[in-house]
């Protein structure tokens, strides 16, 4: 499976929008540095984020990569996803 070409900034922006729409708590803005643990998302919402990535970019992030470090913020989750894609031969146009 070859994922679509991904722009990192666009991915971060989309993830911010997804989290803002789907979080169960919190009233402040969501940006790429918002800690996910404080963004008001539960286990199911985190799975929905993964499936959002899977649907959009056709590549499944293994659950074992969802460590606290990798999910510290949307920026770290984006980096983790892009890193995973690169390691697996995906065509990523990540430019930070």
């Amino acid at each position: 499976m070859i994922p679509k070409k991904i722009d990192a900034a666009e991915l971060r922006h989309e993830l911010c929008a997804f989290v803002a729409d789907n979080r169960q708590d919190g009233d402040g803005p969501v940006d790429e540095d918002t800690p996910l643990s404080e963004a008001g998302i539960d286990s199911f919402t985190l799975l929905e984020i993964l499936l959002f990535l899977e649907r959009k970019y056709e590549a499944r992030l293994p659950l074992e990569l969802l460590t606290r470090e990798n999910t510290r913020s949307i920026a770290t989750l984006t980096d983790c996803y892009l890193d995973f894609l690169e390691r697996n031969g995906a065509k990523s146009a990540a430019n930070g």
Binding site: S43, F44, L46, L63, E64, L66, T67, R68, T71
Partner: peptide
Amino acid sequence: ARSLGLEMFPAV
């Protein structure tokens, strides 16, 4: 949870 790689999935 952390030791099992499930720290983000407490419900599970």
